[in-house]
Design a protein around this nucleic acid. Structure first.
Lengths: 197, 197, 197, 197
DNA sequence: AATGAATGAGTTTTCATTCAT
DNA sequence: CATGAATGAAAACTCATTCAT
């Protein structure tokens, strides 16, 4: 409840369309797309866009929420697999990490969302919590299985996601994951101070 | 020798100032700084900047050469330490990686140089070779010592450099390095195809 | 109908003002006038000019269309005179040629439009066709009257228009026309291959 | 005597080289070539160019003198042919006009020189007089032969030269000449006031 | 609420001309 | 005399944001 209630049906539709177009254009062209292009793609005028969002940055924030939803979805799906006993937690975690990195390479919005995750966590609670909860369950299970290093926390996953070399070729990304995931293995030896932010 | 020799003293001073300003402004604001801002910071007119460099891209290239030099310097220095028997190769490699990542965090020019390293390698041979040679020696020695995984190649180091989470806080960077470096350890188990580019 | 209909009153006014200013400044200073100068003369900001026309070349094209219209108008008017039996076709043709040349001398936009006529003919069909049709009728009638050389084609008229010495004084232009028009006379003797292009 | 005497040998050589380069570059690229390009082609520095000529316009003026020389040469050559009885004056005049027009099409410097001829006649007397004298002799002879219209004067030739459609294809130029030369024929009937300037 | 036109500062780059070396 | 570095005022074009309709 709250503001949403006051939005007229067509206004709500416009808002949704603007967000969709934003995500689509960012996915393809990055955050440099012009607001005019976004408005045009959404089939509204520039003024309408600015009625719904105070400025471009706020628009991007809002649009990336939707992308975060996707991230939550695939993370939950991964956990489902494990909960249903179809794969081991660590196996699934590796697969999930691969999906993260490849998605980041294909979808610039995903990458931006990941950046914000690692940076500020200032997303609305909903999707973030879903993603975080599913991720944490995966981690806990993998630790319990004795496959993942006991110090790993969810922020480490976001850090991995944020630092993925999205602008390189697939083989380079795979190689990068090999290095990175080695750090998540139970067998890793030394350790550093826990990273805050 | 070459053209540089022909430059008048004052012109050389200007050229150096432009490059310095470029590096400084990039360090602080990224590659989006305007050429006008750079010229102003260097205390010259726009035309002077363009007399020395045909366009913005060439200016950035030249400025990043200087940064690459810094990278070569610290890499060579690391190798010296090992060559002089002061530390083990793997220990020094870890320290070097830490320096890389911290420098990238402080200096956006350094990060840009690193990006180019990972992407295209189209720098003038000099500094690149120095950096590469020193890095390779370090790697070889660490492998010979049985401390580093035998499959590591120099491109992996550039990939590490390129993907460093430069926009995070120091503790997060340290933690990230812990994960990443685990992949360089001799003890690592599984392996992926070698990343091309 | 089409886009023009959708233009708001004030926008249409601005568009018209921009076109007027363009023609006026071109008339006086040639096609080298800056877009900024045109915008200023029209009393709008640079961005407004570029909202109406994608680039300078498109603006010039549009402005010259208006001038071409003028050319079509005076050509049609000439034909009317003949159709109404007020003058002979050849007489009117001579008068028309004189008007062409004098107008080209006074109005650099007219000359530019003429150049394009002779070069590429890539104007929107409308005005061009009007001008061409009227011109051809005039030519045909003059030939039928036995006053004009039978090989003359409309392109010859455009060539005359294109080569008019617009930057000379009136007496020189009159004299030039005397020479040129002699070539259109029925009495002319030798002939060359028909000019392509 | 005069200034030339004071020029040192090397200075004179530089001056000549600058003029040569100017003509060459104008011939190929038109009057828009930058002074820097001209200086570079001449193997001198920008300052040297400006020591010899107060500004770009003066440089063009001086350079076009040389082109005018070429014009004088071919005109005299034409007259020689006639004086030697090898061809009739009118025939030679037609050939000369064709050469003028084709040369103007190929050599932008020639065209510029022709423009100035028709406009202001403000060239140094020498070459101008040679060209004019040879041209006049040709005209007088053609008139005496009964082949050229008795009212033709040398300025008419310059007007022809100036208005040649240099930017069209060869067939269009040939056709244009057909029309224009008809006006020079003895057979032409009506007449206009003599064009001054 | 929506429209879409207008703003205007900002971007990269060029070039005739001047002046310190 | 010559050099060539520096100047700085253009030029064409973009885009986030505002505001009259």
């Amino acid at each position: 409840m709250g503001q949403d209630r006051t939005l007229r049906a067509d206004a709500a539709r416009n808002r949704a369309r603007i967000l969709d177009s934003t995500r689509e254009l960012i996915t393809r062209y990055g955050a440099e797309v012009s607001t005019d292009a976004i408005a045009a793609a959404a089939g509204v005028a520039a003024g309408t866009l600015y009625r719904h969002f105070p400025n471009k940055s706020a628009l991007l924030d809002a649009a990336l929420q939707g992308t975060l939803e996707r991230l939550a979805d695939i993370t939950e799906a991964a956990w489902e697999q494990v909960a249903n006993g179809r794969t081991s937690a660590m196996e699934e975690f590796r697969a999930l990490a691969t999906t993260y990195v490849d998605t980041a390479a294909e979808d610039r919005a995903f990458r931006l969302a990941a950046d914000r995750l690692a940076e500020g966590y200032r997303f609305s609670a909903d999707q973030l919590e879903r993603a975080t909860r599913a991720g944490q369950r995966l981690i806990e299970q993998a630790k319990a299985d004795g496959d993942m290093h006991p110090d790993v926390v969810i922020e480490d996953v976001y850090l991995l996601l944020h630092s993925a070399p999205a602008d390189t070729h697939a083989p380079a990304r795979a190689r990068w994951l090999t290095f990175m995931l080695a750090g998540f293995d139970a067998g890793r030896r030394q350790w550093q101070t826990t990273g805050g932010r």
